[in-house]
């Protein structure tokens, strides 16, 4: 039972981060119908921005501000930095290709992903970076927390999971309850029609990239609070995030959240009960099963081909 609870907590931690990444994919795919391969690397850059700001504020062993403020500042900085990065990528690598054949932006995105990962390696090296949150007030984030049975859900996990969910709720409001969000949904439904209705498509797309990339930045920090980050995590993070988005139904916001959690649970339980080695195989099987039986994903709508 303890193992089960522990694995469930693991799954929620992992899944909420996957969900945040998946949201970025799904938002961009919604409005641009573009598989943004570089998204995983934006996530990676986010975790590094967080690391840099953390060092500027004195590091974890000797922070110059209270812990809560430290965490908030680090997360906000990563979100802002990633938002800028996302907009730059969109402006220079995708916008010129908006009317090109669909393979063009995909290849360009591959190029951006490769460029970002290697640029980061060039500048900051490939060694893993540890936020070392353990040093914050003598390990309080690890040692304090909620006890369920014999399992301690540490403060850090509570922070990670709850921040992820708060961000998702904020996103849901932005998309469903604001004018810009409405414009986004309209664009995603039919870009041409939306343009004819007087929606500024460029603005909507920039806004989408700001949202998606900021979420990736936040996910990067939440991820790196617990485990070391390296310049090469972008590939795996992107792969998992996109798989989550596809499973949940690409283009659907709730779907991305559900997909992320499904992936988190699948990985965690496989590692806990079956084998630590084969979790990729299980996730791949789930992906293939969805491709065969429900290609539109869990909550996506089936695509109607217009002739």
């Amino acid at each position: 039972m303890d193992t089960f609870i522990q694995l469930t907590v693991d799954a929620l931690t992992l899944g909420s981060i996957y969900a945040l990444i998946a949201l970025g994919y799904t938002l961009v795919y919604g409005v641009l119908k573009l598989l943004n391969f570089a998204h995983g690397d934006v996530f990676m850059v986010g975790s590094f921005i967080g690391f840099g700001v953390l060092q500027l504020l004195g590091g974890t062993s000797n922070p110059s501000v209270p812990i809560w403020l430290l965490l908030v500042l680090v997360t906000l900085a990563a979100m802002a930095g990633c938002a800028v990065l996302g907009v730059v990528i969109e402006r220079f690598a995708y916008r010129p290709l908006r009317d090109a054949p669909r393979i063009a932006p995909l290849i360009s995105a591959l190029g951006v992903s490769f460029f970002l990962a290697n640029s980061m390696q060039l500048l900051f090296g490939a060694e893993p970076r540890n936020y070392d949150t353990f040093s914050l007030s003598n390990g309080a984030l690890y040692l304090k927390g909620l006890d369920i049975g014999n399992v301690r859900v540490s403060l850090l996990r509570i922070i990670t999971i709850s921040s992820a969910f708060v961000l998702m709720i904020v996103l849901w409001f932005l998309v469903n309850r604001t004018r810009t969000g409405k414009a986004m949904r309209a664009t995603s439904f039919d870009r041409e029609a939306a343009a004819m209705m007087g929606i500024d498509i460029d603005r909507v797309i920039v806004f989408t990239f700001v949202l998606g990339s900021a979420l990736a930045g936040a996910a990067g920090v939440l991820f790196a609070l617990r485990v070391p980050t390296t310049v090469s995590i972008g590939f795996i993070a992107g792969l998992k995030g996109f798989t989550a988005a596809v499973i949940g139904g690409i283009g659907s916001i709730q779907g991305a959240m559900a997909g992320g959690l499904i992936l988190g649970f699948a990985e965690s339980y496989t590692q806990g009960y079956i084998s630590t080695k084969w979790s990729d195989l299980v996730v791949f099987s789930i992906l293939i099963a969805f491709m065969i039986f429900r290609p539109q994903g869990l909550l996506g709508r089936a695509e109607i081909r217009k002739v």
């Binding site: 690598a93 932006p105 591959l110 190029g111 290697n118 390696q121 060039l122």
Partner: peptide, 26 residues
């Protein structure tokens, strides 16, 4: 900068080639 670490530098070149090609001469 680039000459100090040839390994990432040459892959950066590849990335740039891909992006630039797609935009200038797909």
């Amino acid at each position: 900068v680039m000459l100090v670490y040839p390994e990432p530098a040459r892959y950066i070149v590849l990335g740039v080639i891909l992006i630039a090609l797609m935009i200038l001469r797909p």
